[in-house]
Every structure is written in C-alpha cells, then in structure tokens.
Design a protein around this nucleic acid. Structure first.
Length: 719
DNA sequence: CTCTCCCT
C-alpha cells in the first residue's frame, strides 16, 4: 500500500488519493476488465469498433478511460455521448472519481445549461443533442480525436443523426478519428453493416437471473389485473420491492388507489393481519424532482407480525432507463407504452398506447435482477408476447415531424433527402418537412439550402415556429414579452404541465379558479404570459415561494422557463438584426401587439370557426380539417372566429383537436405577415376564403401602413 | 375530457 500510495497521477502530477485504489480494485472486478486488452487492440487497428455489452458490464466507464490513454496527447478530446442529462452527469462523476480528478478538469461535462469543459479537458461526457450542436458549428468535429457513442440501441434522434454523420467522417477522417459505437442489445448487425470495415466485439454483462411469468389469457382490464398481481406478489412472493410499469400517470393513480383500498388503509398503514405493511409511491416525470427523489430513496417498511414489509413503486417508463431503483426483485409490466406519433398525411400528432417491444420488455424485466435473482410478471400471454410484439422499439426519428432535424442536417452541410440515415424516416415526412420549412422562410424556394433565417433558427433551442416568432418579434416592439411567453410554452409544454396534480375535487376546483384568475380572454398564450409575469414580480418582491404555494404552480416549470429565457436572450443578443424591445403594459394595444407577434410565426397554424352555433368547432386553413378547440388554460372567450394554435392532434380515430389556442382578430393575422395573407389564392373556395377576402378588402380600404405590418408607432421601450 | 419520454 505504501509503495502504491507514492504513485503519481499523470493527469494532476499529484499522488493518488486512497479512494483511487479502492475505485481501481472495483473497476478491475468488472466483467469488462478482462476484455479490455482485446478491445484496445481492436480500437488501435480499426477506425470503427462496435462494442456490444449487456448492462452491468462496465463498458461505459472503463473503455473510454482506457482509449484516452492510447490517444495522442495533441489537445484534441475524446467525446463520450449519453442520451440523457442525468446519465451524462452520473457518468462524468464516476469517471472523474476513478481518475482521481474533479469534473471540469481532465474529465469534462457538457449539456444544456452546463459547460464544464476547460483547456485541460481530454475526456468530455456530453449529451448526444449537445454533440449535434457542436457538429453544426464544426461538421467535421475537428476538436475530437475519438468519439464514443453510448446506448446506440436506444436510437434517440440525436444519436441516429450522429451515426449518419460519423459514417461519413469515418471516410473523411480515416486516419485521424477513432469511432466506437456501444450498444446493449444484439442488433450489432445493424451497426456493423452500417460502418463498412468495422469490427464487432462482445462483452459479457453481470445480471442476475429473472424468471418470467405470463397471463394464461389476455387481461380484460389491465389495471385490475395489475392490482391483483401486486396483491398476490405482496402476500405470497419472496421479499423485495415491487416495481410496476404503467402506461400513463392516470393509471398510476388508479393502481395506487386500488391497492391502498385493498390493504384497508392509507399510504403506510398496516394492512389486514396476515399481510405485511406496504408503502406505495408514484414515479413519473411530471412529479417534482423532490417527490421523485422521495420515491426512489424511501425505505421499505419493516417486517410486521412476521410478515414482509414492502415498497411498491408504480412508474411510467421513466424507470426503464432514467432512474435506477435499488432492492427491486419483482417487476410487474403492463407491457404498454404511450408515444407521440406524427402523421404526415394530415400533419397531426397522436398520442398512442401500444405494446412495448420485446427489447423494452426485457429491459424492464432486467430491473428485477440488479441485486439478486428476481421475477417479472408480464401482463400479456406468452403467445401474444412472441407473436405480436415487435423485436425492437420504433426509432424516434421515424415518429417525429423532422422539422428541426432537416434544419440540423442542412446546417451540418448535408441534404436531408440523401443523408446516410442508419434508420431512415419516410421520404414523404422529409418532403413535407422541407415544404413547411420553405413556407416558413427557413430554406430556399429553389435550391433547398438554408436561408439566413434558417441559420438563425438552428441556433435557437425552441420549436421551429416559435423560433420564427422570436426572430420577428422586435418588429412588433415586444421581443422581451415574446421571450417570456415562448420560454413558458417550452417549459410547460404549452401549459399542460404547470399546476400541481389535483387529487380531490376540491383541489381541482381550486386550480380551475386560479387558472381563471390569470386567464386572458384571448386564450392560452397570453394566459401563460400573465402567469410568468406574475411570478416574476413576486420573485423580485421576494415572495416567489408564497406565490407558488398560493397558486398551486410548479416552481420547477417557472424556473426552467426562466433559464430557457436567459439562454435565448444570450443567443439572440449576438444577432445584429435583433433587439430587445418591450412595451408599457398601459398601452391600449399591449396584448394585441403580442398576438400579432405570435401570428408572425404561427401563420401556418390558423383555424376559423365553423358557425356561431358550434363555438368549439373549427376548420384548419392548412388542410381544411374540422377540429375541436381543447385548451389547457380555458377556452378563448368572446368573438373568437379566428384562432391560432400550437398543436393539431388526433385521437387515432376520427376526432381532431387544436391545443394551445388563442383567438386572434383576422386583421392582426394579415398585418403580421401581409406577404403571406395578401393573396388568399392558396385557400380552397369557400366561406373561409370569402371572409378573408372581405377582411383584406376592408383593411386596404383603410391605411396602407396597417396592412404593411410592423410597428405603427415607435416602441415604448428599447434597450 | 386529455396529458408516454427525452433533447437543444
């Protein structure tokens, strides 16, 4: 020990700490340790190496660290990607501890809102989205001599785009860049075939056996069957915590309520005498970080009357990858997931519940075998599992609208139609996305290349339409107000996640009353703005906490809006053509100008009311679809003949909805983007076109300035 | 009467 203790850490030129030797012992015991020499020689002799390793192999921390020592010390770095911020933080901390350095020195960490990369950094742990950002600024990624993509099997959009880019860099930077793709499942063929000349290496993992159990016949009610299974396991199963995968938050609450009723008490009370105590915890992303923390770290109740005490966690798929729970030996899997899917044909989004893939079900079951042998109960028949479920989950790139991705690909100097996708989205989706981007002025009408507006949009981390609003907003004198409003839209998902979850009818009524208090008659957008403004003034008065509590608002959402706002402001400030402008709330046209600024980016998302007798039924201008308004903060009131919306959604059948909606005077629409509206030829003949023609005729009859748009008067605030 | 999950 004493001779070891004198060893010098080459990265710090200081003696290693005692902890270093403890960490090194543990690292040497990982399954990947014995495979390292072989992996390193594969990396030395090949440009692209695919590493397939099961969870628990230790590949994520050990391989990048070892590769780093092989690389030339020329100041260039090794990038190691993760699909989530939390994962990136944990991996960076782990590697830094093993190398006996603090994060931010030799080991760096980078993701949105965090830049711990310095001159000394040689190994950079980064989210895949953040590496895409870097690739947009430098498409050859010249600052890196090695890139390690982790969790490639998850097929996040950013990872799939990076793989396409790396396929080309593997040729362009043949002797200059090492590429390592790490994946957990066995679609090694996919990656191996994608990179010509690559080698595939397999590393064994270390997981305990998980026994599988299926239903004898398909479940009539999934919730009832899950609750029955929970009670069976609790009464007769061996000790250990129970983790349930439910498809949605609604089901989580139903399950917990039913279990508590069956056990005859509230959360931690003792059940009937022959059953031990069980504490129930919900776990999902809309829970505050505090509540998530409590669910993860709560200790199972003690054994009572000789009966086992247990902790029951009912989670969405957040527990599949993002959060690791300890002490779980029983997994009950609904085998269902929800995913948001883009329908190119009518440009609608649909949240659909589907069977999980076999790969996802295996991942879920594996959560029961982290500490010792476990059990997994699947809420489907064995035949159904093998015959009906897909082998792998559908990659995210195939379910999205490709708007932002097309811009990103163009910014990386490639064409969205010929990009070497590892999994290609439908050509129709790409063509549609390019069409929308052309209408928004982000790409050229002819060549399909990025316009200067398109370039600016790629730098703004918001919805593409909202980016247009932000870039255009100084024209209306309210860029400051739009920054707040758009940041709120991003943070709260259009107002969906803003208030605490209401359990009782009383709480629901309370929240409805609060909503009503902040409500602007035009609808969702300005209501969000009102809430943000009220919170900001409470903050500067030092009463933010009381304000949040009183109004049952989620502080995390408002804080995240605030940090998004600051990030956007920093980016926009660098644009020469952009200026921070704000208005006096006393102006008569205060709210009208904000609606106009919103209309400048949302002019492709406008609908008109069918008739006065059906106040919620609207027809979209883009594809003449009939949809109902479904607002999160209360419907627009008054003469809401025209509305703009942020989401056009489908129930998967015949129903269509407009979400995040505001009423807008048609004159505002026209004057915000006169070039687009001047000539309503693009609309099919009918009542919408007729009324628009009438509106425009009345406006041209008036002042020319009005239709030309922009600020009729000088803005009241400029800075 | 609807709200899976991440990322910039």
């Amino acid at each position: 020990m004493s001779s070891n203790a004198t060893k010098i850490n080459p990265y710090t030129n200081k003696a290693y700490s005692a902890n270093y030797f403890v960490q090194r012992e543990q690292a040497l015991a990982l399954p990947v340790a014995s495979a390292l020499p072989d992996l390193l020689s594969a990396v030395a002799n090949n440009n692209v190496v695919i590493v397939v390793g099961e969870t628990g192999s230790g590949k994520t921390t050990q391989l990048p660290k070892a590769v780093l020592e092989q690389l030339q010390k020329d100041g260039r770095r090794l990038a190691l990607t993760q699909n989530r911020r939390l994962a990136a933080q944990l991996v960076a901390a782990r590697i830094a501890e093993e190398m006996d350095v603090p994060v931010g020195t030799v080991v760096g960490l980078r993701h949105r809102g965090c830049d711990l990369v310095g001159k000394a950094t040689r190994l950079e742990v980064v989210t895949d989205g953040s590496l895409i950002m870097a690739a947009k600024a430098d498409p050859k990624l010249t600052g890196y001599s090695a890139i390690v993509i982790d969790e490639a099997h998850e097929h996040s959009v950013a990872t799939d785009l990076l793989l396409g880019l790396l396929k080309e860099l593997a040729v362009q930077r043949q002797n200059d860049l090492k590429i390592i793709i790490m994946s957990a499942t066995i679609d090694a063929d996919l990656f191996g075939n994608f990179f010509p000349g690559s080698v595939v290496k397999t590393v064994s993992g270390r997981e305990h056996k998980v026994l599988l159990s299926y239903l004898a016949s398909p479940a009539q009610s999934s919730v009832d069957t899950i609750v029955e299974t929970i009670l069976q396991v609790h009464m007769f199963g061996r000790s250990g915590n129970i983790l349930v995968f439910a498809p949605s938050v609604g089901e989580i609450f139903k399950i917990i309520k039913m279990v508590e009723e069956a056990l005859g008490g509230t959360r931690t009370r003792l059940g009937p005498e022959d059953v031990g105590p069980m504490s129930c915890w919900p776990l999902h992303a809309t829970l505050s970080p505090d509540a998530q923390e409590r669910a993860v770290h709560a200790v199972a109740p003690a054994r009572c009357n000789g009966r086992t005490g247990r902790k029951l966690i009912v989670a969405t798929n957040i527990a599949e990858t993002s959060i690791t729970l300890t002490g779980v030996t029983h997994v009950i899997d609904s085998c269902k997931v929800k995913s948001k899917i883009w329908n190119v044909e009518d440009e609608s989004w649909c949240l659909r519940e589907q069977w999980v893939s076999k790969a996802a079900a295996r991942q879920r079951a594996g959560r029961a075998g982290r500490t010792r042998e476990g059990m997994a109960y699947r809420m489907c028949t064995e035949g159904g599992f093998h015959e009906q479920m897909l082998e792998h989950s559908v990659p995210a790139i195939m379910e999205g609208d490709m708007l932002r991705e097309c811009l990103d690909i163009l910014k990386m100097g490639r064409s969205p139609l010929t990009f070497p996708y590892i999994i290609a989205p439908a050509t129709e989706t790409i063509v549609k996305a390019l069409g929308i981007l052309r209408q928004l002025g982000a790409i050229d009408a002819k060549g399909g290349s990025l316009t200067s507006r398109g370039m600016e949009i790629t730098r703004l981390p918001v919805d593409v339409y909202s980016a247009v609003v932000l870039l255009d907003s100084p024209r209306f004198g309210c860029s400051d107000e739009m920054l707040s409003l758009i940041s709120m839209m991003e943070a709260s998902e259009g107002g969906k996640q803003l208030f605490l979850t209401a359990f009782t009818d009383e709480e629901k009524a309370q929240i409805a009353k609060i909503r009503n208090y902040f409500k602007h008659p035009s609808g969702d957008h300005l209501t969000l703005f009102n809430i943000y403004t009220a919170w900001r003034s409470a903050s500067s008065a030092g009463t933010a906490d009381a304000f949040l509590k009183e109004n049952k608002l989620l502080g995390a959402i408002l804080k995240s809006a605030d940090s998004t706002r600051l990030q956007l402001l920093r980016i926009l400030y660098r644009h020469e053509s952009w200026a921070l402008r704000f208005m006096s709330p006393l102006r008569l046209d205060y709210y009208n100008l904000m609606l106009k600024a919103l209309a400048a980016g949302n002019y492709l998302r406008v609908a008109k009311r069918e008739s006065k007798s059906e106040p919620k039924k609207f027809t979209t201008l883009s594809n003449s679809a009939v949809a109902r308004v479904e607002t999160s903060l209360g419907p627009p009131s008054g003469a809401n003949e025209w509305v703009m919306y942020n989401e056009y959604a489908s129930d998967g059948n015949t129903k269509r909805f407009l979400r995040c909606v505001s009423a807008i005077p048609p004159e505002c629409l026209v004057s915000a983007q006169p070039g687009y509206w001047r000539d309503p030829e693009f609309l099919p003949h009918g009542h919408i076109r007729d009324s628009l023609v009438k509106v425009i005729a009345n406006m041209t009859g008036g002042s020319e300035d009005f239709i030309r748009g922009g600020m009729p008067n000088a803005p009241s605030g400029t800075s």
